[in-house]
Simulated assay, not measured.
Amino acid sequence: MNRFTIAHDHPSLAGHFPGRPIVPGVVVLDRVLDAVEAAHGPLPALRLPQVKFVRPLLPGEPAQVVIEAAAPVETGAPASRWRFRVERDGELVASGEIAAAGASAA
């Protein structure tokens, strides 16, 4: 589990949205990729076959990324698909799947 908080002065917040900042989805996904790389090392080219944003994440709110391999790893081969959840205070913020660009659909 990787915990993170996006600071109120993050550069992406100025335009997203003025007067009522919301952490952009791409910033949340960047934290998801950081969590996968922390657990599995550098990643190849990736695709996002499924991503769903359920509720907004506001600046300063602590969140956590939970990842799991989407398919069993065979014979010691590295994982190439992961499911993820981003949670805030036990509530789902976003979920989805990340796959190596060459990984087949599960």
Rank of each mutant, 00 (worst) to 15 (best):
F17K: 00
W82Y: 06
V23E: 13
V32Y: 14
R81D: 04
V28A: 07
K52V: 13
A7D: 15
A94K: 05
P44K: 06
V73D: 02
R88C: 06
R20K: 08
V26E: 03
P56S: 13
A69R: 02
H10W: 07
A100L: 05
P44F: 05
R3C: 13
A103W: 02
G19A: 12
E91P: 03
E97A: 10
L43M: 12
V27S: 02
D34M: 12
R47T: 08
P11W: 09
G102H: 06
V54H: 11
T5M: 07
G41M: 06
A94V: 03
P44L: 02
I22H: 04
H40I: 00
S104V: 00
L57V: 06
L58D: 10
E91Q: 14
H10P: 05
M1G: 11
P59M: 08
V51T: 06
E87W: 04
A7N: 09
E91K: 11
P49S: 09
V23G: 04
P78D: 07
R81H: 06
L29W: 12
A70C: 06
P24H: 12
A70F: 08
H40R: 11
L33T: 06
L48R: 11
T5H: 05
R55L: 11
A14D: 13
H8R: 10
E87G: 01
S80D: 15
R55F: 05
A39W: 12
A105Q: 15
S104I: 00
A69Q: 05
I98H: 00
E61M: 10
P24D: 14
A63Y: 05
I98N: 00
D9M: 01
G90P: 04
A7M: 08
